[in-house]
Design a protein around this nucleic acid. Structure first.
Lengths: 352, 352
DNA sequence: CTCATGAGTTGAATCGATTCAATTTCGATG
DNA sequence: CATCGAAATTGAATCGATTCAACTCATGAG
């Protein structure tokens, strides 16, 4: 019938009311007389009006009612990486509850990421700064929208960020194992520097560019030292959080004359890979080797034996992050959140 | 300096050019003289202009450059359910490549879903119709945007939909096991009707409201019958694709006097739960019992033994779905996609 | 009978960019 | 030197709703 699509103005005219009233029928129905409202609604239906156009509404309102989650990774990362998934599941729950939309923004190469961030229809961003965090922050800043950075490897106080207590958490993890009686440890690290995989020394860790990994290492060391174990005695292997590098790390750690009885894994991902590797070698967990992870991803509770780990309170992190974005995060706000020790089956006293 | 935020008009005025030119600087830079362009760009930067407002641009363009993926499930479903994840990972890859944004839309209760679909800023929808598909389609229709339904349990030809060949795939799965020599089967079904869990008879399957499950059952039967196995001899247990109901189903199947040597699972999820259950009972897979799944989720390749399954070509499905939405799906288009048998370690010849 | 009250309605201004026909500028050509 | 065409620029209309001050019209009080 109509030449183009039906506009609010068309409905208003057809129903014989002003555009203002027609608008109210949809966005503030209580203010218009029931009789009129029904008539307008009916007219709208008759005309096949699809409801107020969002863009029109947006233009005036200036709010999209959605937040974006961004990372310097391909989009699929959000569905593949366990940590990202756990976090997003939590974020989506908060969004669900508050009626906020969720848009995924990402790209591995800078060019595209730039464009994606520039053109995402959102009111603010949650930044997953696992890698390339500064780039991401920089790009997002230009957009002049509120944002909050998660897991940022940077202490710039002008960036609103939420992170977990890596130092304290790692210390708690190491203490747990030491208290069980372990004395020979091996550490499997997440990224410390760019493009490096392999055994690393103390000096390299101290000047690591990724503070998350560095803090976790420091935390492990600090706790172990109270048990008389010095850093020099704890071999460390840097992985890139994937299967090949973790297995290489395990080959390295277990080729030592006195292999470790406990593995300090800086992520649950690494820990889970470790358990599989040990199993395949005929080593049983936790009888032969104890393994502790970090993050508290749901997968850790679904394997046998369950993974002992330092759990991040994903729900709380998500809650705060979303709120911060929605309420226009105070830029100087830096929050630190505690992790909790979750003891499951992958840790026990050493054999003898 | 400016009272509010900087608009394009402000930049134009400050740079001493018309608004039209200023607009061109950003959206069609090639058309404006380099000299002028640089001057405007510089002015914009000086003023702290955040780039053309998306809403303003949108209003004119009428395109958001993003698609929504919707399901009648809580948002977290997209990150928790293996099938949804595999699919979304594939969809996101396509989106990434084509520079299309991705928005997640969902809600368990109808009220909210309605609102979410109405207010999602997208150019079209991909509908995950695992459950409550008709509701979803109905709601989406009102929005008058292109959409394509995946895994729709309905044969309405007026709905653009893409689905896999459940019948043929299931037949291939059953044939694979029968050719290995299996003769005693047990079937663990995904939902056939609403709110029912437990053993089901042939008649109930024939009048199942979910065609996906029904077709898979028919497919299994068809193949088995060519091996002389009649449907009456294949016990079927209807699950709701979660751990408790699957375990109840296994209790049922294996309490028979002659327990099955092969399990036909209608989803990889069920198959994986089955393998765990069997393991816990001291039954080894595939020596004691063979298990075949359906879907081809990545998890199936990461467990030991690997899961034999009928793999959906997620990448292809995603590709077609996204294209259909972006190119305004011809409503009468119904596509059927083949699944392929992926043989891994969970199936083998029966013991003797 | 008048006036205040308030619910309901109207119409025009507004949000911020894009677009396109019209106009100006400039260089090249006959 | 006049003229033509291409390139660059301008200005106004436009997208589709929301908002708010102003207005209408009953109703009830004084």
């Amino acid at each position: 019938m109509a030449k183009g699509t039906i506009r609010l103005a068309d409905v208003a005219k057809a129903a014989g009311v002003s555009q203002g009233t027609a608008s109210n029928v949809f966005s503030r129905p209580d203010v218009v007389r029931e009789e009129v409202r029904e008539h307008v609604l009916e007219t709208a239906k008759r005309l096949g009006y699809a409801g107020p156009s969002l863009t029109g509404r947006l233009l005036r309102a200036g709010k999209v009612n959605a937040i974006g989650v961004a990372a310097v990774e391909p989009l699929a990362y959000f569905f593949d990486d366990p940590w990202a998934r756990a976090l997003l599941a939590a974020v989506s729950q908060v969004c669900d509850a508050s009626g906020t939309g969720l848009a995924l923004v990402s790209a591995k190469d800078r060019q595209k990421l730039d464009w994606n961030i520039k053109s995402a229809l959102v009111d603010g961003f949650i930044l997953l700064c696992v890698e390339g965090g500064e780039k991401l922050v920089e790009l997002t800043r230009e957009r002049q929208l509120p944002f909050v950075a998660l897991a940022l490897n940077d202490d710039d106080p002008s960036i609103a960020s939420i992170s977990v207590d890596n130092l304290g958490g790692a210390a708690m993890a190491a203490r747990h194992l030491a208290e069980l009686g372990h004395r020979r440890f091996g550490m499997l690290a997440t990224e410390l520097s760019n493009d490096h995989v392999g055994p690393v020394g103390i000096a390299e860790i101290e000047r690591a560019i990724y503070s998350t990994s560095r803090d976790r290492a420091f935390g492990y060391w600090r706790a172990l030292e109270t048990f008389g174990i010095v850093r020099e005695d704890v071999p460390v292997y840097e992985t890139i959080n994937d299967k090949p590098s973790v297995e290489a790390g395990l080959d390295f750690l277990f080729s030592a004359p006195e292999p470790p009885t406990a593995i300090l894994a800086m992520s649950d991902n690494i820990a889970l890979l470790t358990i599989n590797w040990l199993r395949a070698r005929g080593l049983s967990v936790p009888q032969d080797v104890s393994v502790i992870g970090f993050d508290g991803v749901p997968e850790g509770g679904m394997v046998e034996p369950g993974l002992t780990t330092m759990a991040q309170p994903f729900a709380e992190i998500a809650q705060r992050a979303v709120r911060a974005v929605l309420e226009d995060a105070v830029p100087a706000e830096r929050e630190m959140i505690d992790v909790t020790l979750v003891v499951r089956g992958s840790t026990a006293a050493p054999k003898r």
